[in-house]
Structures are given as structure tokens and as C-alpha cells.
Design a protein around this nucleic acid. Structure first.
Length: 235
DNA sequence: GCGACAG
DNA sequence: ATCTTGTCGC
């Protein structure tokens, strides 16, 4: 994981939007994810009147769903939540956690949109081009795009379109619950992104890596402190 | 001006 | 995202 220092994070909303329009050209939809084994998941937690972000990343082995490694980072954010500018609030802390990772996953799933974004640069895509690793956006609700009704069976999906382009899929990961919005982040195709998310959902609406990351950051915030783990492997 | 609007 | 109690269903 070769991180790139593409830019700083302190700027006006206006500058942030301009930056997204400039960075979107670096996003690649060329699939670079082969057989899946190690999948990462990232998430952030924070309290109401506090801008302290508790970010975490977990790496799961899809063969048996065991936790391979997890790392966390606590950092204050000075950027507010604004639809379309989520990465400027959460990405700094998430990248802090990612830099501590010793294990390089085959791809990372983010809690939020990939390219299914007004300017094509949701937090999933943004993190992908900076960490230089395949990423998949998996959001619980829609930000942009239109789609037809999604079938009731697990695996059913509808194409998510915006501005005359297909930007992702609305995927039913479990029967009886709302579908999720999947879109490529970086270095992954739309079909592969959807397949990755579906393969990572085990009895629940959200992918296992995201669920574990969510539980991890919440535990970090409540029971204070950042506990990490790394179970080394033999190639 | 009004409605929409990831987390 | 967080806050917050109960309630419906497998």
C-alpha cells in the first residue's frame, strides 16, 4: 500500500468541491481484484457534540471470516458533515488507521459511496486513490442516481444510473431488508464490486468487514482507548 | 425559492 | 453519525 500525498485537508467547501473535480480523473474503474482472500473494512464513530473521530480498519479472511488484523486512529476533524463532502470529514482519520496496517488486503470496503457521487468522488473512491488500493463503496442509502425496483431475492439488483451513466448497483444482500448501494471505489469494476459485497454478506445486510469495523470503532469510542491486533500469517 | 441530501 | 424504548417477528 503506497500512499500518495495528493493534498492537504484544511480548506473551504468551495475548494473541496474544486479538488474533487480535479481528483476524479485519477480514479480507475479497471478491475484489479482477482481471487478474494483478505478483505478490509473501514468505519468511523463519534459522539454528538464532539468532533473527535474514532476510525478503524479491520482485515478479514473470507475463507473462514477470521479477523486477521485491526488498527485504529483517533483524531479531531474540523470539517463538518456536508452531503457530497463526507471524505473531508472522515477520510483523514481513516487514512491514519490504514497507515498502521501491516497486512495488505486485496481490497477495502468503505461505509459510503464510491463513484456514486455528484462529482464521482465519494469517500470510497477518494480513499482508494490516496491509499493506492482497490476500494468498494457500500452505502446504506442513496446520495445520487436513479434505479428501478430491486427484486426480493438475495443477489437481486438494479443498475444505479446518473447523468446517463451507470455508476453502480442497488443490491439486495439479504431478503426482507433494504438493499445497499454499491459502487466502485478505485481499481475495481461495477460487476466485481457488487460481487465482492454480496460474497462478504453473511446473514446480515452489511458486509462482514463493515460490521466488524463498525463494532470496533464503537467499542473504541465508548470503552475508550484504541486496542489493535495483528495475527501474522505465513505466506 | 423549494426539495434532496453518504455518514 | 448519534440519541433513544418499546415492539414485532423468527
Amino acid at each position: 500500500m503506497k500512499f500518495r500525498q495528493l493534498h492537504g485537508w484544511a480548506m473551504s467547501y468551495k475548494a473541496a468541491v474544486a479538488l474533487q473535480q480535479r481528483l476524479v480523473r485519477r480514479v480507475s474503474l479497471r478491475n484489479a481484484v482477482g481471487r478474494l482472500r483478505l478483505v478490509g473494512g473501514v468505519d468511523v464513530s463519534y459522539s454528538r457534540g464532539d468532533d473527535t473521530m474514532y476510525a478503524g480498519v479491520v482485515v478479514v479472511d473470507v475463507r473462514d471470516w477470521s479477523l486477521v488484523e485491526r488498527q485504529g486512529a483517533i483524531r479531531k476533524s474540523r470539517f463538518p458533515y456536508i452531503p457530497g463532502l463526507l471524505s473531508f470529514r472522515e477520510a483523514p482519520s481513516i487514512l491514519g488507521a490504514l497507515r498502521k496496517l501491516k497486512t495488505e488486503p486485496d481490497c477495502i470496503i468503505t461505509d459510503g459511496q464510491g463513484i456514486a457521487h455528484p462529482r464521482g468522488l465519494g469517500i470510497g473512491a477518494h480513499i482508494g486513490i490516496i491509499a493506492n488500493i482497490p476500494t468498494v463503496g457500500c452505502a446504506k442509502s442513496r446520495l445520487v442516481g436513479e434505479h428501478r425496483a430491486v427484486g426480493a431475492r438475495r443477489g437481486s439488483y438494479a443498475s444505479l444510473k446518473h447523468g446517463g451513466r451507470t455508476i453502480g448497483r442497488v443490491l439486495r444482500t439479504r431478503e426482507g431488508v433494504k438493499p445497499v448501494f454499491v459502487s466502485p471505489g478505485h481499481m475495481v469494476s461495477i460487476p466485481r464490486a457488487a460481487r465482492i459485497v454480496l460474497d462478504c454478506c453473511h446473514g446480515y445486510r452489511l458486509p462482514e468487514p463493515i460490521r466488524l469495523a463498525h463494532a470496533y470503532v464503537n467499542e473504541m469510542r465508548k470503552k475508550g482507548g484504541l486496542k489493535d491486533d495483528c495475527h501474522h500469517y505465513e505466506a
